[in-house]
Write a protein that binds this DNA or RNA. Sequence first.
RNA 1: GCGGAUAUGGUGUAAUUGGUAGCCACGUCAGACUUAGGAUCUGAUGCCGAGAGGCGUGGGGGUUCGAGUCCCUUUAUCCGCACCA
Length: 917
Amino acid sequence: MEYNFKQIETKWQELWKQRKTYKVEVDNSRPKYYVLDMFPYPSGAGLHVGHPLGYIASDIYSRYKRLCGFNVLHPMGYDAFGLPAEQYAIQTGQHPAVTTEQNINRYREQLDKIGFCFDWDREVRTCEPEYYKWTQWAFLKMYDHYYCNDSQKARPIKELVEKFATSGSEGLNAACTAPMTFTAEEWNAWDEVKREQVLQNYRLAYRADTMVNWCPQLGTVLANDEVKDGLSERGGFPVEQKRMKQWSLRVTAYAQRMLDGLEQLQWSDSLKEIQRNWIGRSVGAQVFFDVKDSERKLEIFTTRPDTIFGVTFMVIAPEHEWVEELTTAENKEAVEAYIAETKKRSERERIAETRRVSGVKTGSYAINPFTGNAIPIYISDYVLSGYGTGAIMAVPAHDSRDYAFARHFGIEIIPVVEGGNIEVESYDAKAGKMINSGFLTGMDVTEAIPAMFDEVEKRGLGKKLINYRLRDAIFSRQRYWGEPFPVYYKGETAYPLPEDKLPLELPPIENFGPTEQGEPPLARVKDWTFDGCQLEYSTMPGFAGSSAYYLRYMDPRNTEGLVSKEANEYWRNVDLYVGGIEHATGHLMYSRFWNMFLYDLGYVCESEPFKKLVNQGMIQGRSNFVYRVVGTNKFVSLGLKGDYQTQEIHVDVNIVKNDQLDLEAFRAWRPEFRDAEFILEDGKYICGWAVEKMSKSMFNVVNPDNIVENYGADTLRMYEMFLGPLEQSKPWDTNGIDGVHKFLRKFWRLFYGKEGELTLNDEQPTPAELKTLHKTIKKVREDIENFSFNTSISAFMICLNELGACHKRAILEPLTVLIAPFAPHIAEELWQVMGHEQSVFDAKYPEFNEQHLVESVFEYPVMVNGKLRFKQTYALTMTPDEIQAAIVETEGAQKWLEGKAPKKIIVVKGKIINIVM
RNA sequence: GCGGAUAUGGUGUAAUUGGUAGCCACGUCAGACUUAGGAUCUGAUGCCGAGAGGCGUGGGGGUUCGAGUCCCUUUAUCCGCACCA
């Protein structure tokens, strides 16, 4: 019988479905393991060969863990709300729910063909009311809590209200948008609207008038991680800064915990570093500078308080709220002109000309609290309103931006740290001896910084402060296809919907664009009200639905809560998360925030959602080219194109094999090539190639269905893993898939002879065969644990090469189990052939046997810190006598035998190659 | 500018973690079986050299008995952040 992968794969996929082989339940008698893939956004283009890469890896690991005796949760679902479906709807008028459903069905069909072990009974879709009920619920909980900095925990807003009524803002240490001070009397005298305004300053989900990223083409605001280089991540449209009233999540409250939490996570260093940079913690001092002839004190933030003696001017951002106040009459015109010009410059221009020096004098002066000198206050756009206080103390001698500014405006430059060449550039390094700095003079910078912190606090000028680059997440989108906010309005004041009214379902509409007044699509809905009050028009962003989906998978049909305590305490958190690195600053930040919040409230039992994370690399396209001789319909093969003037044309990679063009398929590909003629080399047409992004326009999209059709799912799975290390980005190249396919056929032929007869027998294996088997088991197990799937597949191939024509059950049975995570279909089939009734996935994963690996163990002495230690090593092919003989023959060994210990004995492939004395 | 990663045959990659560089595949070449081969099997295949031999892990330097691996330096490519005070 031949290896008929088509028949085998359909058979087992059907059986798995019928038998519910992959259904999992809470089972306290077995240890759990939770393997999660980042669920896909079902786009209209379907899956290409790059998408399943991570799914295959996690599937192998899930099956492996199951075979090792774990109760494995491995679910899948769809991140179904989002912009593309809505934009498609605007163009075609088709409801996003309809296209999303179609896309999901197509995805499912494609996924099923690859043979994944997902428990589809746990599928979730973020766009379904039963699911987004819990997204809305979490939002209401955030609305109803504030963050207490003292206990480092979310607390009910009710406690805050009680506190305000008895003692006002006194002694309050809570995360807020802007610090406020008021007394209990004031609070008690305020009406509900005013009180609510104050509370919005503290709520973890709040509505505030802030600078936001506004994308006119998309007609919506965006969070920081959705903007790249001043353009929207989706669509690439310009984004501008605009002051708007929007819902936000106070993720900044959790900045420190998110930073600390990284320590215990098994994530790649680069990913942790990206998150650290994104959080951007910096320790510095808040310092108040007196403004000359004013009661005002200008607040700044600096990480270099040691350089205060070198401050010769101050700069505030053009958006700073005191701009008007600080501008003197004679500078008014210039300031207004400068601000108008700044506003005109788009975010992109600002980024493009970061080194351009511009600014204007306010005419006001501040007093350097240490030198007593009056120093001018400037306005410049190199100071950002969003970071720190939007104002800086400028030290031109030790900050390159301040230096450029001072040079441009002819401001004095006073060096206060020894080093560098101040005539040419600023000396920014945090090292050296202090000069010109009063009481700091003579100290080293490293001493001067803490000394200045103390001095600033002692003199009441300010205090030590930690600043984060992280911004709160803007949470509303002026779009239709997202979760509605469970919020209604009385006048300007927002009120939460009662919890029992959830889910607040997304109403059907027909026109998905914004209204003529520029309001979100939901403004078109008649009766979009609750209790006669207007409901919120905005919807939630894409990351809302994906922030807690891993919790929902634990208990997906629960109507009483997001997840039951029982399910949560069993499954706890994700042991292994596989997905792309592009979510580093988005989804992976929001999920951690969301989870920590629910942890504070006691709804979940782990503070971190994803223990271990593996980022699979991107699969790029590998395009093929043909070369048309200019002005003809002749095509010249790659090696001969130098002799002609040619034009390079992308050709569909699906009609090219091993860079050789299928001439008939090419003629049939497009009408204009029907009469194509070819100039061949050695009777073949060889195509050129290049690595490019996988896209339709380059005809380099390889569809997994085609591969499954031609080679089978098992071959696709193994080949995707064989391509190289999981985390590395690499071009898809179908050349080479034959090698993996050949391997599977070879494996099959160990069971079945040429005539289709079963060749399996019960003979005793030889020691050499056992050694090969156990070596393979050891290697494969180690490689799976290290996510080094490419080398484990090499190990399988070596194994078959070594075994040759071995038809012994004692060898083939464990090998079948060993290979099952990689090639589940063929493994199931052969397992059945061997007479097993149960699935191979109910078997036990084979353990390697050291006895067969190690033919001789010997001890050798090593010097460790001057002490003699004995280390064990083994030689795979030598007998102890041979080892003794080798030692005696080896120069240096004689000394060992004479009593002097060698430092090391080097055994390579069973031979002692050197003894180090 | 700051931070991170990568660099090995014609190609994808591997290397008991400091121990014979190139495992396993692809491709190529040769042979066998075939009416035929884009099937199967066998063998060869880092480079230079007829050979002995020499040279080889982006470049340069260092540590070591020994370096693809560790240190310094440099180049190229990719990624993240970026007037963050």
